[in-house]
Nucleic acid binder design. Structure first.
Length: 433
DNA sequence: TCTGGGGTCCTAGGACCC
DNA sequence: TCTGGGGTCCTAGGACCC
């Protein structure tokens, strides 16, 4: 093999593509009158700001700001605030990812609004022009604006992406392959902006004279390993251009599945909390079935509001090992109620409960119990039917009676936009006893 | 009054065994 | 009963991500 070819075969190249202000952009796609206006999207229960349009950022609204701080702005119409609409965002995300996969056969969907593209075979193309073509196409086909950063490793692609967004000149696309450009980019990147460096590591690094990504690459491996373990070592190598993180095209099955939410209002009655917790258990069950697995260990937790200092506080959890791993709504709800009953104490105003499943195994690896009295075949076929109905008519079309009829605990989302892209169900809900 | 939810990976330390 | 080393498994906690 001639040396030039050998070189090519060794060279990696990744693009990190991320949707600008994703949730806010989704809200704007179907309401173009919001273009150019400040838009924010709120967390569950309309608690705090989780996404902001550029105009909202310019107003000084911070990520994570509690909604009550900007309520006045929203009420007089200076800011358009939306409850989060995950059905809409999930659907828009699929459209973006489908469009991106037309540009390379190898893509890793990293989160709802980010993906890595393997551009290893595209070195000879005009990369800048190719990225612009990707950006234009996604904008045209989905209405979502994206930014692209391209570099030889995933961590460097993240650096490139951040600068692509920040730089007036780049306007959303930055290709970093030249070593001098890479060094400049690392010098222009503050250490806390590096992927994998959180608050604690940033503090530690600054204490040791590291203030930019470039400074970090100058630290020796032994020091990095000692203070930041193998994860830190991998990161510093990636920043020096040595690719250690591969593209993960197939998401591995989850090892833990959790569903927990704050209640729409404080709850004091056991029966209401039981309904909410039953619903969380059913959501966990649906997540399990979606990835083709069952869980054997369940933890249920319950807590009051830690923020309100004057009220009496209580929190507790109970972990149960099930006789046989399962993904049935009925069984998981049954055990969730048992666990909840054992930790519930009257006399508190509760804020939140949750269900957490572990020891997750594929459906085909379940250990059965000789004394098992549950008719598993019947449960499976019931759940299959429930999932089919849900896929056709919407998630809550069929549910277990324990989940309740008119739940007081349901999240507050007073500012939800319509589900523009998915069917709205008009069929009455069916309950399984 | 109001302050999100759902994950991953790694390490240290203790229990236990040979 | 004490001495020592080495291995495995489990758990709790800390760090990070979006």
């Amino acid at each position: 093999m001639d040396p030039a070819q050998a070189g090519d075969a060794m060279t990696t190249l990744f693009a990190l593509c991320d949707c600008n202000n994703f949730y806010a952009s989704c809200e704007r796609v179907f309401q173009p009158q919001l273009n150019g206006k400040p838009v924010v999207v709120l967390s569950n229960n309309d608690g705090c700001v989780v996404a902001r349009s550029n105009e909202a950022k310019a107003l000084g609204i911070q990520m994570g700001a509690p909604f009550f701080e900007i309520r006045d702005l929203a009420e007089c119409g200076d800011v358009h605030a939306f409850s989060s609409n995950y059905v809409l965002y999930g659907d828009m995300s699929s459209r973006v990812m489908a469009t991106l996969s037309l540009f390379t056969p190898n893509i890793e969907v990293y989160s709802i609004d980010e993906s890595f593209l393997d551009l290893g075979n595209f070195y000879k193309k005009d990369l800048n022009e190719y990225c612009w073509e990707i950006k234009r196409t996604v904008q045209q086909w989905t209405g979502i604006p994206i930014s692209l950063g391209v570099a030889p490793t995933k961590a460097l692609a993240k650096v490139a992406n951040k600068l692509a967004k920040k730089s007036q000149k780049a306007k959303g696309v930055l290709v970093l392959t030249d070593p001098h450009h890479l060094a400049e980019a690392l010098k222009a990147t503050q250490i806390e902006d590096v992927w994998g460096v959180g608050r604690q590591y940033a503090k530690l690094l600054r204490r040791h004279g590291v203030s930019t990504a470039y400074d970090f690459t100058q630290k020796n491996d032994a020091w990095v390993k000692k203070h930041m373990a193998v994860v830190g070592l991998r990161l510093v190598k990636e920043l020096r251009g040595e690719s250690c993180l591969e593209l993960e095209e197939l998401a591995p099955p989850k090892k833990g599945i959790c569903t927990s939410r704050g209640f729409g209002e404080r709850l004091t009655e056991y029966s209401q909390i039981e309904e909410a917790t039953a619903s969380y258990a059913a959501t966990c069950a649906r997540k399990l079935r979606k990835q083709g697995s069952c869980a054997r260990v369940m933890t249920v937790f319950l807590q009051t509001n830690f923020f309100s200092e004057r009220e009496p506080q209580y929190s507790n959890s109970r972990t149960i090992t099930l006789p046989v791993a399962t993904n049935s709504d009925l069984e998981l709800i049954h055990y969730a109620s048992l666990a909840l009953k054992s930790i519930f104490r009257p006399g508190y105003r509760y804020k939140k409960s949750g269900v957490f499943l572990t020891e997750i195994v594929p459906n085909y690896q379940i250990q059965y119990d000789l004394l098992d009295k549950v008719d598993r075949e019947k449960h499976n076929s019931l759940m299959e039917t429930v999932d089919r109905l849900a896929a056709r008519y919407g998630r809550d079309i069929v549910k277990v009676a324990a989940q309740g009829l008119d739940p007081l605990w349901q999240m507050k989302c007073e500012r939800r936009s319509p589900c523009f892209t998915t069917r709205l169900s008009e069929i009455p809900i069916v309950y399984i006893e």
